[in-house]
Computed example of a mutant assay.
Amino acid sequence: MDTRTVTLNGQDFFLRQWGDPALPKLLMLHGFPEYGGAWSDLAPYLSDRFHCIAPDQRGYGQSWAPSGTEHYAASALVSDMAALIAQIGDPVAVLGHDWGAAVAYGLAMFRPELVSRLIIANGVHPVPFQQAMAAGGAQSEASQYINNLREPDAAQWLSAENFAKLEKFFRHGMGLDWMSDAQMQQYRTEWARPGRLHAMLNWYRASPLVVAEPGKPLTDLPQLPRDKLQVRCPHLLLWGPNDTALLPEATQGLEEFAADLTRIDIPDTDHWLHHQNPQAVADAIRGWVPPEDQSS
């Protein structure tokens, strides 16, 4: 792995990279509460076939972290990564997990010329996810934590006692614990950078998605422009079936938005599949990407 800082839209962003720069590019987008280093488990299994590029996204790690929720609208987050792809050479394959999946979907839907292939690992398209969260059923119940993370004082109580509550949420709230104490300390170091945790939480606050109370479905949500939310490139959905935060219903109907969709489950994994079984995740990606897209 090597690292560098690049300027995107006039701001500094920190990147980690694995593999020969002459290989096809794979842009790897992390979610909450991770950072670009979260791909350190998976990237070594792919770096002989791809030049893996993992940025700390806006508000995370060593990248630009402006204050103010308005800086974390989806259009701004997508613009960051569109600027990065323009620098590294487009189009590229994009892999997104959790909130990184939201940015990856945004790139594929609104900047399709930049994305050759879309890979999502336990992440969700906005329409099926909003439908599931609005239904008042199991996904609504599983997503109640989102409202907690949107609270104005969330950064304060999550960071108290050396990030005790955030650690509990991370290691036990969304699946099985997979990390070592040394890895946990690396995450604490990233979370403790000035203003970062509040910035990370602004991703939740800026999102227009609404979570219904369990048993109280919402019926008055605005209609999303389905014709503008299509994924037209080949799309692979990798899924850890034991995820407790994102349930299978959150991806029901995805085929309506991705005509060229392949679904692959990674057995005995949950939300953190890229940490729990990186070999299986890498094998699934290798098997799905044609050989001509894996060579220089």
Rank of each mutant, 00 (worst) to 15 (best):
His30Val: 02
Trp39Arg: 09
Asp41Met: 09
Leu42Asp: 07
Leu42Trp: 06
Ala43His: 06
Arg49Phe: 10
Cys52Met: 03
Ile53Val: 13
Ile53Ala: 03
Pro55Arg: 14
Gln57Arg: 14
Gln57Tyr: 07
Arg58Lys: 12
Gly61Thr: 07
Trp64Pro: 02
Trp64Lys: 02
Pro66Arg: 00
Gly68Val: 14
Thr69Ser: 07
Thr69Arg: 05
Thr69Ile: 15
Ala73Leu: 15
Ala74Ile: 15
Ala74Met: 14
Ala74Val: 15
Ser79Lys: 07
Asp80Lys: 13
Gln87Ala: 03
Ile88Cys: 04
Asp90Asn: 06
Pro91Met: 13
Val94Asn: 11
Ala101Ser: 12
Ala101Leu: 11
Ala102Asp: 01
Gly106Glu: 05
Leu107Trp: 02
Leu114Glu: 02
Ile119Cys: 12
Gly123Asp: 03
His125Cys: 12
Pro128Arg: 08
Pro128Glu: 04
Pro128Phe: 02
Phe129Tyr: 13
Phe129Thr: 05
Gln130Gly: 07
Gln130Trp: 04
Gln130Pro: 08
Ala132Trp: 01
Met133Ser: 11
Ala134Cys: 09
Ala135Pro: 02
Gly136Ala: 08
Gly136Leu: 05
Ala138Gly: 05
Ala138Ile: 12
Gln139Tyr: 07
Glu141Asn: 05
Asn148His: 02
Leu149Cys: 03
Arg150Gly: 00
Glu151Phe: 06
Glu151Leu: 15
Pro152Cys: 08
Ala154Trp: 07
